[in-house]
Design a protein around this nucleic acid. Structure first.
Lengths: 341, 341
DNA sequence: TTGTATGCGTTATCAC
DNA sequence: GTGATAACGCATACAA
């Protein structure tokens, strides 16, 4: 009962024409064809429920019509935001988008990229798991367009990034202007480069203001596993406990991400502190959740959606050969003031 | 400068062997081959940076190694949760996963499915945009495994679902047991079948308790656009305003989803009502956000992740021909009691 | 143990 | 207007 899928040959036989004619009609190519033949083919296509096999076509062209997006984890809100930015731009094109997940595993990431290349995709937008990216441009031939997000990829790759360091500076500046002098930093593990960048900016601006950088005020979780979002929330909760119990607690805490900040916010309040009166809390990313917490969360928006849109734009330009030179584009962060500071 | 990608032929020429031998070595097929040939081929592969072209291989086999997931919207937390459940199971197999987004557009959805089929994928897991699914099994040949989520697809498709109606009943029962008699229902548009199902269950259980079904207590938003998550939140906020201003307000409100409930929660409190004392609020889905609101949100967990895992399991079984008959599996909902009721 | 030749479904070049 | 036929890259039956 397993029906074999009809091929163009079947269609041709059915209507007594050749595959050449059938192909021309199906592809609507600009070629003289009799109305009679066209009608016959269209009917046969309908009767057989013929659906063209792209593998044949792509092989012939030696080029597919697909672009890949490869991100560390689909269940992390940061990346879904990013993908939305990309998709919104790409959905209006004729390209087919393949979304792949590297599960924060460098080995898996490399495999996924290799699979995509083996399918002869035309372009890739890649946000790598970590800062080790040398292998990428060695793997991706120049005939495949390449855009790196968050991390530079070298070679012929374009780069779209966010200024994590500046974002970190902005957070400190905002708190300083609100009168805070004792400011802590709470983070998930710094293997994620944007968290490290935010910390760098934090330190830099603290120094610029000549504020104390107490070791006790740096709280970076070290284990790195569990379900993405929940994991960062639990880090926030845990660090909140630490901070609340300190002899000389800070008056404000900068969290490396909104998810960490959300956990922090909740636990601080559960421990009886008022936010922002007793402790101000800030995050980064401007995720949807930052509007749902009570109080709503002040955050630095790195421009994730804009970055996605720009990456898509660059990819398209490169595939059209209109962007021969590798381009760098950095999105400026934006402070979103809400109730938590 | 555009280098042509090396083919197997190039590898063969380079090491003075035939493509047959090269193919056998590259595929590690169980076939007698001299160590010398093996070494030569491996070196040539490295030197040329040869990467096999799957289009050729798939075409030859007339079968690819890929499965597709097609969902309404990647930026909707409900679906990312679902995809996570699927991926967690599929990542341990040799199948390649292609994630596609139908943008809540039925026409786009059909196109996406067609593209997947044209690429000769082996199986699809599909959560359709709406309840109109007749076209699906007409489009998907029996040689392609098919699993429907949320909506039945007919034909040879398996089905994994959640009991939305029962979930709706559970919500009412929970509130009733807490003493609530005047209960409202707030929802995003009912074009999304699970929202309609929850409403059905709500109505059924209200009738069973002989509770009043006042028209004013049914608040269903009618416009349907904007960014997924933010959109549902704003619906929740808007309906909160309506409810707070009523002459004879309910004492509890069931929201069709956690996102609607989160918006509701926030706005009610902003308007000076205490949750749950003045107004109890419930949601559905048990999304991560339901743990981040203040108060945390009581919700009915429909078992999204389990459903994803089960769908993956069924798909794999079907592709291995170990599940010849279409299977139906419905996940029982679970009440998650938190602070909002 | 290795090589030759064929075909997978498609498009394009040529001849008719 | 239409129809043979040769690629595209790969895997394999068969020959050597």
């Amino acid at each position: 009962m397993e029906q074999r899928k009809p091929t163009m040959n079947d269609v041709a036989k059915r209507c007594g024409l050749s595959v050449a004619t059938v192909s021309r009609i199906i592809n609507n190519v600009d070629y003289p064809v009799s109305d009679e033949a066209r009608a016959k083919v269209q009917q046969a296509v309908r009767e057989l429920q013929y659906n063209p096999n792209m593998l044949g076509r792509y092989l012939k062209f030696n080029q597919s019509n697909e672009v890949g997006i490869l991100i560390p984890h689909i269940s992390n809100y940061y990346y879904t935001e990013l993908v939305s930015g990309i998709n919104d731009s790409l959905m209006h094109t004729s390209y087919n988008v393949l979304l792949c997940d590297s599960y924060r595993n460098p080995q898996y990431e490399k495999n996924q990229l290799q699979y995509l290349l083996q399918k002869q995709i035309k372009g890739v937008i890649l946000s790598t798991v970590n800062a080790e990216t040398d292998w990428v441009c060695r793997l991706v031939p120049t005939s495949v367009s390449l855009v790196g997000i968050d991390q530079r990829l070298g070679g012929h790759a374009h780069f779209v990034g966010m200024d994590a360091e500046k974002a970190g500076e902005m957070a400190v500046r905002h708190l300083y202007e609100r009168g805070h002098r004792k400011i802590a930093f709470a983070s998930a593990p710094l293997g994620i480069p944007r968290y490290a960048g935010r910390l760098d900016g934090f330190v830099k601006q603290m120094r610029a203001y000549d504020l104390p950088l107490l070791p006790a005020y740096f709280r970076v979780a070290d284990i790195d596993r569990g379900r993405e979002n929940l994991y960062e929330i639990s880090i926030g909760r845990r660090i909140a406990g630490n901070i609340a119990r300190m002899d000389d607690p800070p008056t404000a805490v900068v969290c490396a991400s909104d998810m960490v900040a959300a956990g922090m916010l909740q636990e601080l309040q559960a421990l009886g502190l008022r936010v922002p009166q007793d402790m101000a809390v800030m995050g980064f990313d401007n995720l949807t959740v930052s509007q749902l917490t009570t109080p709503t969360l002040t955050t630095v928006d790195p421009g994730v959606r804009e970055v996605g849109a720009k990456a898509a734009e660059l990819l398209l330009a490169d595939m059209n050969k209109t962007a021969p030179e590798p381009v760098e584009w950095i999105c400026a962060p934006r402070l979103i003031e809400r109730q938590s500071t």
